[in-house]
């Protein structure tokens, strides 16, 4: 969608006026809007019968409009916070856990990519641990940290790190032999090899790992928070379920989805800025 507009505006000898641009954007949006409308209609139909267990879209909107939708920045006592603050609390945990995972994961990935010995030693361990579901780490994490917040962050860390390690390692191992040969002929120093060959060649793989990891982090935080409690979108959902307001659960799910999409796009944008063009 966005690329279409870009190429249109670049390839033309004259730049199309803003109105035409907006019109084109609207045109591109039509299929999405239709699909959403159909989905909402089907949902409304399914949930409007006599014994419907879930609310339809209209009921969700009606029940969450005031105060949840119109006042996302509400600040009350304890966990009684607006949805914006709930999401921010979750995002903070994800940010810390994810950053740690990125730093440690890239370092470990390069280590196993560069050294065959390290690969033989560590790869089997990674392969076993990466299949462990995020929540299985939570009891250990709680036992070790003795506090719910660092425990949730550790779960994010341990969930996000595997795809980063594995993709970085594969990236280093897949550096084209040609580039390594050039480095050998030129007798590049270790530092030059790292900055001019290894890192640029591996960056696309690193970002593949980072992109998978951000999705997993966001998945894991919602689940972890349901168990650890406190302010956060995960506990908000659990709390809303326990108090019987399914409409709030549905609204929160929608927000979780939107934020997940934004996180994914964010990594893509960063990747576009950082990954060298071939």
């Amino acid at each position: 969608m966005a690329t279409n507009i870009n190429t249109a505006s670049r390839s033309g000898a004259f730049a199309p006026n803003p109105a035409a641009k907006i019109l084109q954007a609207l045109k591109n949006f039509i299929p999405t809007a239709v699909a959403v409308a159909v989905l909402l209609a089907v949902w409304q139909l399914l949930c409007s019968g006599e014994g419907a267990t879930l609310p339809g879209p209209l009921q969700v909107l009606e029940e969450t409009w005031d105060p949840l939708i119109i006042n996302p920045f509400f600040q009350g006592d304890g966990t009684d916070q607006g949805l914006f603050w709930q999401l921010v609390a979750s995002l903070k945990r994800v940010a810390v856990g994810y950053m740690l995972a990125a730093v440690v994961g890239i370092a470990l990935g390069i280590l196993v990519g560069v050294s065959t010995l390290m690969f033989r030693a560590l790869d089997p361990i990674f392969q076993v641990l990466r299949t462990v579901p995020p929540l299985a780490w939570l009891p250990i994490s709680l036992a070790a940290m003795r506090d719910s917040n660092p425990a949730a962050i550790f779960v994010i860390f341990i969930t996000a790190i595997w795809p980063i390690i594995i993709n970085t390692g594969v990236g280093v191992q897949n550096i084209p032999q040609d580039y390594n040969n050039v480095a050998k002929v030129l007798q590049l120093s270790k530092l030059k090899y790292f900055t001019k060959v290894l890192l640029p060649a591996t960056v696309p793989y690193i970002f593949t790992g980072l992109k998978i990891a951000i999705g997993l982090s966001w998945l894991a935080i919602v689940a972890a928070e349901m168990l650890t409690g406190g302010v956060g979108i995960g506990f908000f959902i659990w709390d809303a379920y326990n108090s019987g307001s399914i409409s709030e659960v549905i609204l929160a799910i929608l927000y979780v989805g939107l934020v997940g999409l934004l996180l994914d796009k964010l990594i893509s944008v960063v990747a576009k800025m950082v990954v060298p063009e071939g």
Partner: peptide, 18 residues
């Protein structure tokens, strides 16, 4: 070992694309 006193011009160019 390889060294810059014997420079190689590879068939597939081997320039660093970045």
């Amino acid at each position: 070992e390889p060294g810059p006193d014997r420079m190689v011009v590879f068939q597939n160019y081997s320039l660093l694309p970045w």
